[in-house]
Each structure stands twice: as C-alpha cells, then as structure tokens.
Amino acid sequence: MSKVNIFTRGFFKENAVFVMLLGLCPALGTTTSAINGLAMGLATTFVLIMSNIVVSLIKSQIPDKVRIPAYIVVIASFVTVVELTMKAYLPELFAVLGLFIPLIVVNCLILGRAEAFASKNNVFDSILDGLGMGLGFAMALTILGAVREVLGSGSIFDIPLYEGDGALVFVLAPGAFIALGYLIAILNKLTKKTA
C-alpha cells in the first residue's frame, strides 16, 4: 500500500463515521455546531496519533494475550492528558464537550486502529494512518456540525447566516440522527456515480 494511500483512505474510502460507522457517539453527541465538531475531531485525532505511535513502538514487547488491556491503558492515558490540558487552557470548550472527552477512550475507532494497523506496521506508517483516520473523523464531525448549525441555529462557525431561529430540531437529538442519515445517503450516491 502506498504512503499516500495510507493517509488518504481515512477521508473517503474508509471514513470512520460515514463508511465504517465507528465513533458514532461523539459524532452525534458533540456536533451541535461546526466548531464543536471540529474541536472533538481534533482531540480524537491527537489521541489516535499518539496511541498509534506508542502501540507501534511497543508492539513487539507486548504478549498477545494482554495486548488489549495494554492498549487500553495507553489510550486512556492520552485521553486523560487531553482532558487535563483542555481543563487548564480551554475550560469553555471542555464545558461544552464535557463527558465526551473521557469517552474518547471507548471510541471504537482508536482501539480499532491500534489493533488493526499500529500493532502490525512501523511507526511512520502508523503516524500517517492515525493522521489520515483522525482528520477524516474530524472532517466528518465538522461537516455534520456545520449542517446542524446551519439548519438549526442559522449560522456557521458562529457567523449568522440568516435571521430567525432555524429548525431547532437539528440542534436537538433527533436532528443529529436524521442529518447523519441523509449525509450518508448523499455520500453513497456521490461515490456510486464516480465509481
């Protein structure tokens, strides 16, 4: 597999949210606005890259039977690092994302990449993989956040687009499911045409 391919497949072909349906909880729970989605995506990307690096470095030292608990400890540590750093320097953002920051630890995407990629490949490729998958995830969350913000609050990245309140339902829980459903449908349609 070429290096470019390792990096780019996280965006479309194997996009975590739209194609693989991984990490759906934060994808739905934090995307009330574009900026929140982007922030959550970047936090996840950081954890993903770091855990990919460490897992790739220590892979040969970990006995097979305890690899999952070992990976979980690594991932949980980086999640806590993100949590503490956000509390210290971005307290407002932390207040919005709240519970979903510690929950990065159970994002299937991260353990999935550690198990499926980083534990079998060298450090450089693992970084590329983490970067591609992570940014693809961040992109998906930003798009979903943007759609919900435009429809629900009538603004994008906090810049007002039109007068009035927008369709509130898109900021609330049901709108999250419906918006993601239609986004996947549109994406399916587009990829089928080009193929």
């Binding site: 040969s60 970990i62 006995p63 039977k65 305890v66 070992a70 690594v74």
Partner: peptide
C-alpha cells in the same frame, strides 16, 4: 520485526505492570 514476546504468565504480569506504571 522482532519476535513477539510469548504469553507466559510472568511476561504478561511484568508487561502490564510496566505499562501501567509508566502511564
């Protein structure tokens, strides 16, 4: 690639201990 460490009891305990301590 170096050979994987075997899953002996000692190995497992030692590795998990090291990983948790470092973390």
């Amino acid at each position: 690639m170096a050979a994987k460490k075997e899953s002996t009891f000692i190995n497992m305990v030692v590795v998990l201990l090291i990983v948790s301590t470092v973390a």
